[in-house]
């Protein structure tokens, strides 16, 4: 393990009773990296973060923060980390300044250091207007800023932020992400979120978890490349009811230039449906149409849509089978809706 690795997790496992919340998670985060930690609710993001901050212990595996083992050196680990838990749980009866003071006292900053750091934190978190206010009277957005403020008060080399933007309005979000990019230059930041667009703005790398496993870990460009794909959905019928072998159709479609993948979708007696993927810059609709004309097929359906980052995320986290099922149920609910409006 090189000294550059600030967060190191090896085969981290956590069981809650018989439920396996984390299943052998492995990753590393290096100095100066801002890493987005993504996944649906219940995927294990918060559990991982709680383990890394020594709030709970893993059932198995090793984790090191700034070179300190989370079992053997727990106080050192916590000194190296600034942590903002989900929904920023703060002491509501304290004022913002009192709270920052409390965090500084626990971290044993002396008075001069506290003043210097507090000035900096107030500036970057935008807390000047609310310093004297009790936290109970602040909006969720401001509470989150205070939470971030306490995480930064001791100038930690590592920041672990659990959904830090969930309560912010769009302006605050943009500001916050901008700020993260700034501080990420000298620090190591691990931040969890549902929102891929945010990761795109602030992070250089993303780790995607699903059901306690890492399903993707890589530079954002790689994930974006995956996301840049365009997909076509087409439904084809053979000549005048002649049964057409699925494999023949699939082979012909695969032959189109630019097609990278042909996936089977559900078929019915009317025809076979396929999903085609291709790279961003070529429009395949014309080619698909021509192919159908040449072969004498009837084209029942053809449409194109761009796969967004969210789609990639969904694909990775719920899997193909579930995705197809949810498409199916969408169709059903649409049909249901139509029937209702006809009746109405």
């Amino acid at each position: 393990m090189s000294s550059d690795v600030m967060i190191y997790a090896n085969d981290l496992t956590k069981n809650f009773g018989s439920f396996r919340a984390l299943d052998k998670i492995n990753f590393e985060v290096r100095r100066g990296e801002v890493v987005g930690f993504l996944g649906p609710n219940g995927a294990g993001k918060s559990t991982t973060m709680r383990i890394l901050t020594c709030f709970i212990a893993p059932s198995g595996g090793v984790a090191k923060i700034n070179g300190h083992d989370i079992f053997d050196d727990t106080l050192e680990v916590r000194r190296s980390v600034g942590y903002l838990p989900q929904r920023a749980p703060l002491y509501l009866e304290m004022s913002v300044l009192e709270y920052l003071r409390f965090a500084a006292d626990i971290r044993q900053l002396d008075d001069a250091t506290f003043k210097k750091r507090a000035r900096n934190v107030v500036e970057v978190c935008g807390l000047a207007q609310v310093l004297g206010k009790e936290i109970r009277h602040l909006s969720h957005g401001y509470r989150q800023r205070v939470g971030l403020g306490q995480a930064l008060i001791h100038d930690p080399p590592i920041l672990i932020l659990d959904e830090p933007t969930s309560d912010l309005d769009p302006n605050e979000k943009a500001e916050f992400l901008d700020y993260l990019k700034q501080i990420g230059k000298q620090r190591t930041v691990l931040l969890s979120t549902h929102n891929l667009a945010e990761v795109e703005i602030a992070c250089s790398r993303a780790i995607i978890v699903s059901s306690g496993r890492i399903v993707a870990d890589g530079a954002l460009d790689d994930i974006r490349a995956k996301a840049g794909k365009i997909r076509y959905v087409t439904s084809i019928q053979g000549e005048a009811g002649r049964a057409l072998p699925r494999s023949e159709l699939q082979a012909a479609l695969s032959g189109i230039r630019g097609v990278t993948r042909v996936a089977d979708l559900a078929s019915d007696e009317a025809g076979h449906s396929f999903e085609l993927s291709s790279n961003r810059d070529i429009d395949l609709r014309r080619d698909i149409f021509r192919l159908a004309v040449d072969k004498g097929w009837t084209l029942l359906e053809l449409h194109r849509d761009t796969q967004t980052l969210e789609d990639v995320f969904r694909e990775l986290t719920i899997g193909d089978e579930r995705r197809n099922r949810s498409l199916g149920s969408n169709g059903q609910s649409q049909r249901h809706h139509m029937e209702q409006s006809v009746q109405g």
Binding site: P89, I106, Q150
Partner: peptide, 14 residues
């Protein structure tokens, strides 16, 4: 209940 314990315990306190 309020979750503040998580923030307190993840500070460097025994």
């Amino acid at each position: 209940r309020s979750g503040t314990l998580e923030l307190l315990i993840t500070m460097p306190v025994k």
